[in-house]
Design a protein around this nucleic acid. Structure first.
Lengths: 356, 356
DNA sequence: CCGCTCAGGTGTTACGTATAACGTCTACGG
DNA sequence: CCGTAGACGTTATACGTAACACCTGAGCGG
């Protein structure tokens, strides 16, 4: 290899045809301005120049970069490095603040490790099925998906990207690691709270949604109440919607002749509970004296309602944080365990002992 | 023939969390498999081969690409093309569904033009100030920012990326195009509704937030009521928070001795209205008989409350759609006009004529 | 038989970055 | 005065794609 050629400046003819307009400066432009090679610019600005570049040169480079307003082209960096230090979070909807809190937790942990997080709401039906994330994956190292069925993620980058699933149910062996909430335990706490207050006739307003977390809620209520002597459980299913819940609650509160009205409405979510409260009021029932109502999720809505809702608080930030921690470990090639986080009942004003 | 050795299934070791990912196939691999050059693969898969590549060859290429499970490297494509067909939407918070609906509208229009949209919540204080979008801008052609002050976006990619601002107030001359809502008109509709019902003593529960939309709301209420003979306006400022609103409403409902209690609470947002309702109930007032309450924004919350809230519906999807349309035009180098969209009062059950 | 066109491709380059591998110059011990 | 080890940079290259310029026969009119 004889590289001693007389070409002291190889970059000379670089900007020949290019007019000196406002094209974004590249590292080569910085190099020219600082009188060094492009590689040196890369070293200095990459922060790994200690002992390889003199302080004086490094300063010249940084000075030139600042003068030119240089900002590295991240697409080129991503191509070169094969990684982007960015994660994609997929959420089923933006409507409720649970996901906002999950995002917050994930973003915090990511930022601590120099990672960014972008969000991709997955409105079912938008975008080609085989390419669920559209062009988002151009700059993505891994994915955190919340509340999605495993098969809905089949198309994800050909299954090549590291993936962590949140709120998706027990981890499948060999599948991606998961972060879940102890939903069943939360529901048990609700049931025990009501039973402890003396309620025996309980109506369950159940979300008619085919997602793990709701199946668990329904199943747990039935299983837990089955162990209570004298307990009577009725059940009404409805979509996750205030008006639908109102209708369902009305059905539950007008039992067939000969049956007594339930003394408590146990709802699968705060939204449903809001509907249930409206139904109760429209029947002239007073809360919680005539009827107890419970929610789940503890949205901001829960505290905004009147009476404030007894609900189950979900540690959303922790879910996001643990999920991001898991993803980062995955990216480091480490083995990651799935985890289940505890939840807590928050007793407020919508529950009381039943009227005698 | 080229080496197609029996690699029917490339990756077999998924256990232990180690994601080997045996080198994603590149367009060159596809070319080898199809017996053509890489350039031809690019032509065929790029969809611009009509009249330049025979149908037979094109089929062979697509077949090979399918067999190998080829997916183009978007980082490389972005680098080559200098554009990404992806927009970044910046929102101040994920908590309310206004932004969800804005996103939905923007994503729909984007999808119609082969664009994707990723979301970047901008939690104030997260991320270095000079680099507000972190690594998100690696694959971004333009930005749609909602409800942000113009100067908060100063650091945006060095100000180089096309930008559209939503809900940010009147467009600055020479600044980015904007999409705004006729917030002032909406507030006027609320005031006229209340005045028309007969209300004269009105308390304004104002959001104490330095954003254009809230400043306008406050100013409009005052201006509009100033033109009503005999109208008495009091005002309480508070953070955008249910509990704070409750406290503020309590102050408004307990006027100094000698002054009559307002007959209506005009709130800057549905969240504040929710707090106001709680305050009213805690004082034993009945809605809307003893007190009228109005919201703004028409969140899902508005219909979930009891009584259902009279509020102002914002055409959020339209805002997103128009914003994306503007951004796409901007990317095409076209001139774009700022626009203001109308809003509509939705009268529900929380307003009524004042008690005599 | 020549030259022209045109379909049907191929070779090559450039995008901007990071880094491995390799020079060169100085200082210094032996 | 040579050998050698830093200190200090540089050259060359690869990442995967898209697009430009070119190449090669075949058909065809003259």
């Amino acid at each position: 290899m004889t590289a001693v050629g007389g070409s002291t400046r190889t970059d000379e003819r670089k900007g020949c045809g290019r007019l000196t307009g406002s094209a974004r400066p590249t590292s080569r432009d910085v190099a020219r301005a600082a009188g060094v090679s492009q590689a040196t610019v890369s070293l200095v600005l990459g922060g790994k120049w200690h002992g390889r570049v003199s302080e004086r040169t490094a300063h010249a480079v940084r000075d030139a970069a600042g003068r030119l307003g240089y900002r590295p082209n991240l697409a080129a960096r991503n191509l070169r490095l094969g990684r982007t230090r960015t994660a994609l979070m997929v959420v089923p909807a933006l409507t409720n603040d649970y996901f906002a809190r999950v995002y917050t937790g994930a973003a915090r942990v990511a930022a601590e490790h120099g990672f960014g997080v972008v969000l991709y709401p997955s409105p079912a039906g938008v975008g080609p099925a085989r390419d669920p994330f559209g062009s988002a994956q151009a700059a993505i190292d891994g994915v955190i998906a919340s509340s999605m069925a495993a098969d809905a993620l089949a198309g994800i980058g050909g299954g090549e990207l590291p993936l962590v699933m949140l709120d998706s149910g027990p981890a499948a062996p060999g599948g991606p690691p998961t972060v879940d909430l102890a939903v069943a335990d939360g529901m048990r706490q609700v049931v025990r709270h009501l039973v402890g207050l003396g309620h025996r006739r309980i109506a369950h307003v159940a979300a008619d949604i085919d997602a793990w977390t709701f199946r668990v809620r329904t199943a747990t209520v039935a299983a837990e109440l089955a162990g209570v002597p004298g307990a009577v459980l009725t059940s009404e299913r409805c979509p996750l919607d205030v008006d639908a819940a109102r209708a369902a609650a009305l059905r539950a509160l007008r039992p067939p002749a000969g049956q007594a009205r339930p003394t408590a409405l146990l709802c699968d979510g705060d939204l449903l509970a809001a509907g249930a409260c409206k139904a109760a009021r429209s029947l002239g029932l007073r809360l919680p004296g005539d009827l107890s109502v419970t929610g789940f999720d503890d949205f901001a809505l829960a505290a905004a309602l009147d009476p404030e809702l007894t609900s189950v608080r979900l540690p959303a930030e922790d879910v996001g944080a643990r999920g991001m921690t898991a993803l980062l470990a995955l990216l480091d090639g480490e083995a990651v365990d799935s985890v289940e986080l505890p939840v807590d009942l928050v007793v407020r004003d919508s529950t009381a002992p039943p009227a005698v």
